[in-house]
Amino acid sequence: MPSRSYAGVDVEVGEDGFFVHPEQWTEEMAPVIAKESGVDDLTPRHWQVVNFMRAQYMAKGDSPSVRLLGKASGVPVKELYELFPKGPAKLAAKIAGIPKPRSCI
C-alpha cells in the first residue's frame, strides 16, 4: 500500500489516493489534500460538504453519492460542481479522508 505524508503524519492511501483508514484523517490534512487535487481554497461551503461526507460515512459506512449530497448536504448539485469540479462526490470524499464512493451496478 502506498503512503503519503499530510500535515506531518504518514497515512496509508489506496492506489488512487483515497484514505484506507479514515480515522487517520485530521482537519489539518484537508487543505493539503484539497490543494493537491486542484482546490486551492477550502471555503466554509466546502467544509459543509466535507463534514457532511464524514458524518454520513461514519453513520452508514458508505461514502455518499452526488445525488445524495445534493438532497441532504444543504449544497445544491450545481454548486457542488462549482466547489469540487469534475466529480464532487469523489473529490470531496478524498478531501474528507474517506474511501472512494462505490458506484451501484
Binding site: 453519492s65 452526488v66 469534475k86 464532487p88 462526490a89 469523489k90 462505490r102 458506484s103
Partner: peptide, 8 residues
C-alpha cells in the same frame, strides 16, 4: 471490491 472509478 471496487466497482468502478466512476462518479456515482
Amino acid at each position: 471490491e471496487e466497482a468502478t472509478d466512476a462518479e456515482p
